[in-house]
Design a protein around this nucleic acid. Structure first.
Lengths: 353, 353
DNA sequence: TTGTAGGCGTTATCAG
DNA sequence: CTGATAACGCCTACAA
């Protein structure tokens, strides 16, 4: 238990310890690092004094000397997204066990914010960077091209970057969701997604379009509404349609495909407010498979994202390059799957009635 | 756009820039910091060269010199808790606008992990620390006693620490939840909560006990089950009861009070699995008011936590001490409120039938 | 076994 | 206006 000496204001460093013990500061340094060259008795003397004075090593100085900060930086497009939150929590916890601290950054789907984040990460000398790019524009990525095996890209595939990847096939997810709608007879679906400048959002819509093509159903791009993920925003998209745009579409909408479960809850909220029933009046399919979606009213049909697997892949990459010194870069891809629950109505069966 | 010079491996520092431009490195430093003492023409020369070489200032060196790292550290008991996640996301985003980086740490309700976290935060020279203590044991807190106005305690009230507080009255929340149960005729409730060593968990139970006392209903401490917050764990508590302990209680359980909404979903999961109905067979009250709880089946009656207000208070404290240099410490307290939805059945009305 | 010197990349204080 | 120098706290050859 550190008892403060009289003038506790002064910073306690190896120098001040050295002065107290009456040795040189390099002896203190060695003792603190368990250098066997130091006599046991003096080491003990030093260790005790350091403890008593409440010494904490200065990582800045250490990092400056050693060119290693034991730091990994994570830059995500939107850290409030539950899947991303889950992933960085897992990474953070695991890396803490190895003595690494994790810095989290939020780009908010904004290239400039992303660039600022990359620059501060570089400036802070992070040992490893995990980035979920906000766009396919390579300008920001170029800042990171020096150390390809100290970088993993999350979410998208970037062919020209020879770095680690933890990819998610959003196109396939969108495809699966749209197929589920189409095979249940929903030909006129609304799509609520993130800004299309965001690569995964665009992939998502591509996948949907592909399904429409396969089913021979024309895909109306006006049906794609973009907004930032939140219950309120999802709600507002429906609200807008309800209040104003209702007549903008010749065919009534029977289904909604959303970029994530959160937006789907926005539709749920609208159902409560405007008194329509899911799935009787409108069908909904989400994306992510939030654990809570199994208990929603009705249980949400959604696209399951293997977030455990994704987190695991990130951790494997980190461990093998930071701890085991591997130099090859690896590419992981996560396949989304459809989880059928109760938010999609079968329109075809109805017709038979 | 930084074009790499031939040997791009070498670190680019103010020294290397100085060599390229043909000035002294202190001139470069001044130019980079917009010191008016530097001639415009040479400043421009230097700025261009720096840009061309892809210079990034080294924050470690900066911090070492200036004794300021533009860093705030957040140490929470469980960063996956949605309320805490929400709060640190808000703080992180706002502080990023001011050029501050936020480091997140997870103590996992463990005093030793908490201590390790505090030590690394100290070692990393964070400018400000936000801590949600895992226990009332002051040993770890003592490590932070040197700079009381650079510390805010989240969640609990620590009378003897003269630092900032953002407190939550969990006792009152527990009281409200229990009152709702009791006033609907539920005298035999299960409580599922975090380990009682965790201060807020203990407060929660205190509050429940107080309600029982006011209603003149004996409170059975055996009804308090502790586990870590997760849907699975909440489920398992019910499972255990169902499979093994069913006969351990003389009176059948009619209600469940949980420490957070996540645990409540565990009960929902059990309802699905064991085919009992909420609230017909068992009533449930959560805690936190997860935004999604409004759409659960049935909508979850819960205790609302003003997380916006809490985040705002944290941000205010940070801004006023870090940016405006205020030195007084402030104390904020958040009051939880009851949100009645559909997961509690009125047992008394039933009797009248 | 311990002490000395130099340097990691910056900034600040002086001289020139 | 620009340059040399010291210092921030630590580590590591090398010397004693």
């Amino acid at each position: 238990m550190p008892v403060m000496t009289s003038e506790s204001n002064k910073r306690v460093t190896i120098k001040s310890i050295a002065k107290e013990v009456g040795v040189s500061f390099s002896t203190v340094s060695k003792a603190l690092n368990n250098d066997p060259a130091i006599k046991k008795s003096t080491r003990l003397l030093i260790l005790n004094k350091a403890n008593e004075m409440g010494y904490t090593p200065n990582s800045l100085a250490k990092g400056l000397r050693s060119h290693s900060t034991k730091t990994v930086a994570i830059i995500f497009s939107d850290i409030e997204n539950p899947v991303l939150t889950y992933i960085f929590c897992k990474i953070l916890t695991k890396m803490a066990e190895h003595g690494y601290t994790t810095m989290i950054f939020d780009s908010q789907f904004n290239e400039n914010t992303e660039r600022a984040n990359i620059l501060t990460v570089l400036s802070r000398q992070a040992d490893f960077i995990i980035l979920e790019p906000t766009s396919m524009n390579p300008d920001n990525l170029r800042l990171l091209s020096k150390t390809p095996n100290r970088l993993t890209l999350q979410g998208i595939r970037y062919e020209t970057m020879n770095c680690h990847h933890v990819h998610v096939d959003y196109a396939h997810g969108g495809y699966l969701a749209a197929c589920e709608m189409l095979s249940n007879g929903h030909k006129n679906c609304l799509v609520i997604t993130e800004a299309l400048s965001f690569p995964t959002s665009r992939e998502f819509v591509f996948g949907i379009e592909r399904a429409y093509n396969e089913y021979g159903v024309p895909f109306n791009r006006d049906m794609v509404k973009t907004t930032h993920s939140s219950i309120t925003n999802g709600f507002q998209v429906i609200q807008q349609l309800w209040d104003h745009d209702k007549n903008a579409f010749s065919v009534p909408i029977t289904g909604v495909l959303t970029f994530d479960d959160i937006l789907a809850y926005g539709v749920y909220k609208a159902a409560l407010q405007y008194n329509f029933k899911i799935p009787d009046d409108i069908s909904v399919i989400g994306f992510d498979d939030n654990p809570i979606s199994a208990f929603s009213m009705p249980p949400l049909t959604t696209i399951h994202l293997p977030k455990d697997k994704m987190a695991e892949n990130h951790i494997n990459i980190l461990q093998s390059t930071l701890l085991s010194g591997r130099t090859e870069t690896c590419f992981f891809s996560a396949d989304p799957t459809l989880v059928v629950r109760g938010s999609v109505r079968n329109l075809l069966e109805k017709k038979r009635n």
